[in-house]
Design a protein around this nucleic acid. Sequence first.
DNA 1: TAAAGTAAATAAATAAATTTAAAAACTATA
DNA 2: TATAGTTTTTAAATTTATTTATTTACTTTA
Lengths: 407, 407
Amino acid sequence: MSKTFFEELNSENVTGVAYKNINLKKAALAYFANIGNATIADMCKELNLSAPKVTTLLNDLIQDGLVKDYGKVESTGGRKPNLYGLVPDSAFFIGVDIKQNHLNLGLSDLQKNLIRTVEDLPYKLDNNKESLEQLCHHINQFITDLPVPREKILGIGINLSGRINYATGYSYSFFHFDEEPLSKIIEAKIGIRVFLENDSRAMAYGEFCSDSVHGEKNVLFLNLDHGIGMGVLIDGKLYYGKSGYSGEFGHIPLFDNEIICHCGKKGCLETEASGWALVRMFRQKLEEGSSSLLSRRNMQPSEIGLQDIIHAANHDDVLAIELIARIGENLGRGIALLINIFNPELVILGGSLAATEDYIRLPIKSAINKYSLSLVNNDTKLKISRLGERAGIIGACLLVRNKVLIS
Amino acid sequence: MSKTFFEELNSENVTGVAYKNINLKKAALAYFANIGNATIADMCKELNLSAPKVTTLLNDLIQDGLVKDYGKVESTGGRKPNLYGLVPDSAFFIGVDIKQNHLNLGLSDLQKNLIRTVEDLPYKLDNNKESLEQLCHHINQFITDLPVPREKILGIGINLSGRINYATGYSYSFFHFDEEPLSKIIEAKIGIRVFLENDSRAMAYGEFCSDSVHGEKNVLFLNLDHGIGMGVLIDGKLYYGKSGYSGEFGHIPLFDNEIICHCGKKGCLETEASGWALVRMFRQKLEEGSSSLLSRRNMQPSEIGLQDIIHAANHDDVLAIELIARIGENLGRGIALLINIFNPELVILGGSLAATEDYIRLPIKSAINKYSLSLVNNDTKLKISRLGERAGIIGACLLVRNKVLIS
DNA sequence: TAAAGTAAATAAATAAATTTAAAAACTATA
DNA sequence: TATAGTTTTTAAATTTATTTATTTACTTTA
């Protein structure tokens, strides 16, 4: 029943009143999707329709199985209105967050509820066909294990790092073997619509939809991990740029050094302000004889990873805290620049480094004050991500939901 | 007649069918404003309405005096359609572009035609009440000299450099004497609605509406003058940020020098890549004994201004060309960063330095290639402004037109 | 506890839009 | 040059949405 509805939703060559009705249905669904449940009166205001029209519209959507009557709700005097909203289990979405060394998978329903997650599933992201095969296998396994019929899953959102052209479904940094776009290749193997997204942008979207954001329309999200990624919300919408490559904040030429970045250039922000840089600095300090919780545990410098340093900092390791402050200061200079350019209401720090909270936030904050115009930076709040590691799967699910439901 | 219409346009507390009709009128006007003239069939497609409805809508607008029938036009076989469009002289807009040492004024009609301009009117922009008084006087004089009745002028757009809060009408860098917003103060003295805008953003808008831009939706405009300003077009709309302070590209901390910028900070892009920087470098070179067209004309280093250097470069002065190339290289590093962040389709170079054309464009281009990711910068075209000095008044007029007509 | 007041939902009446059909204006081809 | 084919425009018919009025449901106050 609902399947025919989603077909109808994307049908072409519909004109006149039929077209308008489809659009009204979309608008109603989008409203429910964004706002949650609503009364007929709410919908009248939102959609500029009369009560009888909204009533028939809702009845149609109830017939389609997408909307249901949630019963009466309190009123400010007078007859209690009925509340209507989406039927949570009428449709589902899958989010896949591909990290360097593991996979996070999640399932959300129509009402944004995260029903099930599988986190830290061991998986090695390599740029070869076996790795891609493995990925599809994991996704398929996840789906077959779900207590949800396959046909109710309307789409899969996959987050991948590097250059992704969201619109065409091409990935340029990973799995770019064929003529066909990567999204189509995975789609063929799984049999459900696939949407690729840049990992940082997906995390950003997850965060934007969370309660970190209250009505702010211009927000920057920074994914502070080994690399530095960014997602930009402008006017309440994700910003892509021409081909979806926007937000390459990690590779802006901000330093005058001789360190070669992963991108092949010199002087990138990532060479002085990323997780890679932190690991490099940390190892170097140890080799120079500095002491740390980690060295006292007899770890070799070359064995030490980013997670170890973050963990050490959160256990009051002075060297880790010092170096994170240095990273933060460098990063803050970069963020100052973003604030001058974007005049955002809010900057959210996410990714694994954000777990060090004020150890990274405060140096960033003071660098922002130092390097950006005060009238401008007074406008901007600086927060730590609420969702942490989960931002990725949540964002992936919500993006697919949006794609299918709203646009 | 048309006056009552614009009142109706902004009337509140209108609901139901009356509200919808006002919205349709707005949509029709916006369509004409953006696209130009159109046939009934075009409007049907655009507004998703039936032919009879569009006919009555157009008749209403014709009654209001805003739209007229432009007669028949060629067809692809079959009956020739009638073309409808805005009545050019049913409404007018004034644009005022305030420069450091002069004023440009312009009048445009409803059809975007620039009817009259007064350029290079001597005026000294100082941050005091006399200067503000002078400004109002000039504007008033311009208006009384016009062959257009005052009541047909629906608004005045004023471009000012520095921090402008477009929404509230406050200017923070100039004329910030009173509690009241500057726009209201000028409005009171002239008796016509006033809209303030940041100068670079207004120029950007002028350029975006010109034929430099063909369907590109994500465009950056750089105002290369004494300072460096930027206007950003995102998804076809001007980007403001939280309070309208976005685009402070000149004050990003990109250099590690000891030069104090106008903003009070060190290391700003403006200290190494602006008109001010060019003048400083040029004077220094002369003092160090370098030779130039200008020194051979017996000009003292301290007398030399930006225009002189631009003029010299365009007359093949080697020193000027060399230093402009250096400025261009520094600027290019900044633009590379913007390209990484925005992935724009187009970057337009405007402002007085853009008049040196390839002398500035080519060094910028090569720095972009050097400092930004190639997959990203391959997406971006780099053009010199078409409108030159006029971008300001055109942008100011068009912004007011937009404000009154569309939003 | 009844009556007055308020808001939501529904029904009937009315207004407004779309559809369908027909007329008008033009092009292309036999 | 007449006729068939197109496309626009207008007119009439029909559908659809809005208004207005009424009923239902509940709150508040006398």
